[in-house]
Design a protein around this nucleic acid. Sequence first.
RNA 1: GCGGGUGUGGCGGAAUUGGCAGACGCGCCAGACUUAGGAUCUGGUGUCCUCGACGUGCAGGUUCGACCCCUGUCACCCGCACCA
Length: 801
Amino acid sequence: MEYNFSEVEAKWQAKWEESGAFHAEDRSDKKKFYALVEFPYPSGAGMHVGHIKAYSGLEVISRKRRMDGYNVMFPIGFDAFGLPTENYAIKTGTHPRTVTDTNIKNFTSQLKRVGFSFDWSRVIDTTEEDYYKWTQWIFLKMFEQGLAFRDKTLVNYCPSCKVVLSNEDSQGGKCDICHSDVIQKSKDVWYLRITEYADKLLQGLEQVDYLPNVKMQQVNWIGKSTGAFVNFSLKDTDETLRIYTTRPDTLFGVTFMVMAPEHPLLDKYRDRIANADALDAYRAECAKKTEFERTQLVKDKTGVCINGLSAINPVNGKEIPIYVADYVMMGYGTGAIMAVPAHDERDYAFAKKFGIDIIQVIKGGDLNESAYTGDGEMINSDFLNGYTNKKDSIEKMAQWLTEKGIGEKGVQYKMKDWAFNRQRYWGEPIPIVHCPHCGMVGVPYDQLPLRLPKVTNFEPGSDGESPLAKIEQYVNCKCPKCGADAKRETDTMPQWAGSSWYFLRYIDPNNAEALADPEKLKYWLPVDWYNGGMEHVTRHMIYSRFWHHFLYDQGIVPTQEPYAKRTAQGLILGPDGDKMSKSKGNVVDPNDVVNVYGADVLRLYVLFMGDYEKAAPWSESSVRGCKRYIDRVWNLMENVTDGDGYSAELESAFHKTVRKVTSDIENMKFNTAIAALMTLMNDISAKGSITKGELKTYLSLLNPFAPHITEEMWERAGFEGMMVTAPWPEYDEAKTVDKEIEIPVQVCGKLRSVLKIAADADKDTILAAAKADPKVLPYIDGKAVVKEIFVPNKMVNLIVK
RNA sequence: GCGGGUGUGGCGGAAUUGGCAGACGCGCCAGACUUAGGAUCUGGUGUCCUCGACGUGCAGGUUCGACCCCUGUCACCCGCACCA
């Protein structure tokens, strides 16, 4: 009897949908389990096998949790605002709304074909007015609290996409969307003050269960450093040059200062600078470089000494020269540093190149060779001399600086505020009105959503203006405060806005009064388990944690942290071992796999192909292996014998497999769980028949992985109800033990024989049997056994002389 | 440069955390059934020439015993990167 997977899979998908099998209950006595996967961006290309792997992990866990008796919410939605859709719309002349609707329809049918147990009654789309109304609402709350603000600074700008990018969106100096070089541009942009939450985001990591490398990456991205700010006075002016340093205790070793080429004081004091022309030339040169180029030339230090402007070292009154060099960045600290060439590699390289003095203040190393960055006794440092502990000397200096009023302890973060506006059409409109009298005014809450106007031309302006700026009816409005003629903000929010809170909306997707009902939030939060890609760790994960912390501080959500646990799946590589990409032509379409092998095989394979957290290449022949396995499972029905229990031959195998599959699923060791099921399958085949009780357990264990075939077999075998809420099998530890066990026997650490012996045999019996074993005898005969090592249930090792 | 990780058959990967290395799957080999097999089933499959020896990137060490722990070293992957 051939297994007709397409018929069976369609049948059960329809049954699940009709019966509402996966609807989460908002009020329930059961324990809740909120499983979250990163909702897809509905691209025109359709689903990718990577999506299948990303969702299959929590899919299996969710299905198992339902069988464990939990009230499970496993929702899905679409993160649909964004550039690819807009660019496609520009190219084809189709409205992004139409493109999005088509793509979502396509994704929905593809996801349903795989049989994921999503609660489709909670589906959300970030581009729907009822949804982005609340995205705008949260933005206004931030605006009210001063966390959303405008500032004119240097920003990352992608000349190709014509948009301002956040730091997170331009990692490595490349645009996240088109990978072209990002340039620095001075622009008036919207920021979200994420740096205000830097410390909370850091501390919050201590109370969540994230993969260690996920935590690590976030810690690094936040990049907290502690040190001090010191104000150096500029000679013959009232001005001070403020710097940040992690080693204020090396102040006596300062022999020059460095300012970033963009430092504003350079403009202010330009007329005092004797070599202003040379300086201008240097600054112009730096301005031409991209951030990437600037950081690439690590070895080659360049710079110009400023003639006519110098600083005074506050600890000893010495005059010190000031340089301008692009190894100092305007974006970190204060844009100026005190240089201690004796103990900083970069300062050392610069000092060597420019012939600047080097004063040692920490004992150790050889300054003729390189800077000494280790610890040691402080020298040449007046009141710090003799200190050997870095902590103490830093503390002492910080104290001294504070007393004299020339500095104080301080903290710096690598993370920058989130550049939040995009000069594009397909995003949430920023709900702000610019009034000539009142300044920036938020759109009143009762006027939300501020709708994205229907337009026909989505091209951004050549000057980097949003397409919305061209629509007069949209731009011209009245100030909500004073009623005067005013202008609307025309930029939209970045891709990451809608995804920063979507998991809250799943909890109450149709609420018109609030982003979600507080009672429901209290019941469902936090997300119990969140799975997604590593690429989102320093973007979406940071952003959404920031929004959630903010909402917590506003009393809107009941938990400080949104996600209790976070895991990540590894990439699926192409069959050639390279990252899948259209240009390489190594992309596998999940639809093709479902068509040829069925959804169960696809689901099984993406979990069986390797360690869930690691990357693994696609292998079509291994997919066939999973197909073979599924067919063998189907054939189990050919020889089912009566009996609710386990047969004597397979009893311990079943108990062991239940134990292994149960714990492997919890630990996301899906590959070994499936392997255990395959092994048990082989044991059943060897025996030639299966009891009804065994079949019941086998189907239950396999159900989360291959729900369609197991439901069908369950029904045909006459078991009760649907498998969706069938109880998860239990095991008896005592019955996992075999009656007869195999004990390897070593002589001097080398394996000589394997003893088959009763599991309850005692040490003496086993040792005696080992010494009498014909395969062991030749190695101990005539020699003295000087030591007997006996590990219960494990092995015997005889040491002879 | 800093941080994290990984090195095991022809391939993807197992190994109860110090106790039979290579589970499971792919591939390959042989056989069976077949007009046929890129279907299915059965058996085999780390390397070396047999008894046996050798085998977890490399070199040492600890131990009765090491893929696992320690020291050194090499290679690759990921993240951050002139962060003061």
